[in-house]
Amino acid sequence: MTTPTTERRRFARIHFDGDCMFYSDTVKAPLKINDISFKGVLAESEHLPELKVDDKGLLIIQLDSGETRIEMPVTVNHLTARCIAFQAGTMELESIAYLRRLVELNLGDPSLLERELENLVAQE
């Protein structure tokens, strides 16, 4: 049985144990990613940067020790004492491809990936 929360969620959150950097005009802050989806990132830090809802910036998510990374323009969507929920903006094609592959590997079911992509296109 599904709950109202899961019925409303269109994008699967993928647990992702990794680090990222948040950049804005006034802030540069390392964060730890809790989960990621096509629509955003939930990150945490013991020392959150001073941000407000609707602040904009860029998350750089390094996927390996080389040049493979996701560059995600973001808007702060929600804040708690230790966590920041970011809503993803429009990404460059290369970053979308890396994010798609990350989601694909973690979902494990091609039909779930297709549903995610259909929902993403429908949102645009």
Rank of each mutant, 00 (worst) to 15 (best):
M1N: 06
M1K: 08
T2Q: 08
T3E: 10
P4C: 09
T5L: 14
T6F: 09
R8P: 08
R10K: 13
R10E: 11
F11K: 03
F11D: 02
R13P: 02
R13S: 01
I14D: 05
H15A: 09
H15V: 13
D17R: 09
C20A: 15
M21V: 15
M21L: 08
M21I: 15
F22H: 01
Y23E: 12
Y23L: 12
K28N: 10
K28S: 14
K28M: 11
A29N: 00
P30I: 14
L31A: 05
K32S: 12
I33R: 05
D35R: 03
I36N: 07
I36H: 02
S37P: 12
F38R: 03
F38G: 02
K39F: 14
V41R: 01
V41N: 01
V41T: 01
V41H: 02
S45M: 06
E46R: 10
H47L: 11
H47G: 13
L48M: 10
P49D: 02
E50W: 01
E50S: 08
V53A: 05
D54H: 11
D55T: 05
D55F: 01
K56E: 15
G57C: 05
G57R: 03
L58E: 07
I60G: 02
Q62N: 08
Q62I: 09
L63I: 04
S65Y: 10
G66T: 03
E67H: 05
R69S: 09
M72C: 11
P73S: 04
V74I: 06
N77P: 04
H78N: 15
H78P: 03
L79A: 00
T80I: 03
A81E: 13
C83F: 13
C83V: 09
I84S: 04
I84Q: 03
A85C: 15
F86C: 05
Q87E: 15
G89H: 03
G89D: 07
M91F: 04
M91L: 02
M91Y: 02
M91W: 00
E92H: 11
E92F: 02
E92R: 04
L93I: 13
E94H: 11
E94T: 13
S95I: 11
I96Y: 00
I96N: 02
A97V: 14
L99R: 00
R100P: 07
R100G: 08
L102S: 08
L102V: 13
V103C: 10
V103P: 02
V103S: 00
E104G: 09
E104I: 13
L105F: 10
L107G: 05
L107A: 06
G108P: 09
G108W: 06
G108Q: 10
D109I: 14
S111V: 12
L112S: 07
L112Q: 12
L113F: 07
L113Q: 05
E114N: 15
R115V: 13
R115A: 11
R115P: 00
E116Y: 04
L117M: 13
L117I: 12
L117H: 04
E118S: 13
N119W: 07
N119M: 10
V121Y: 00
V121C: 06
V121P: 00
A122I: 09
Q123N: 15
Q123H: 12
E124L: 10
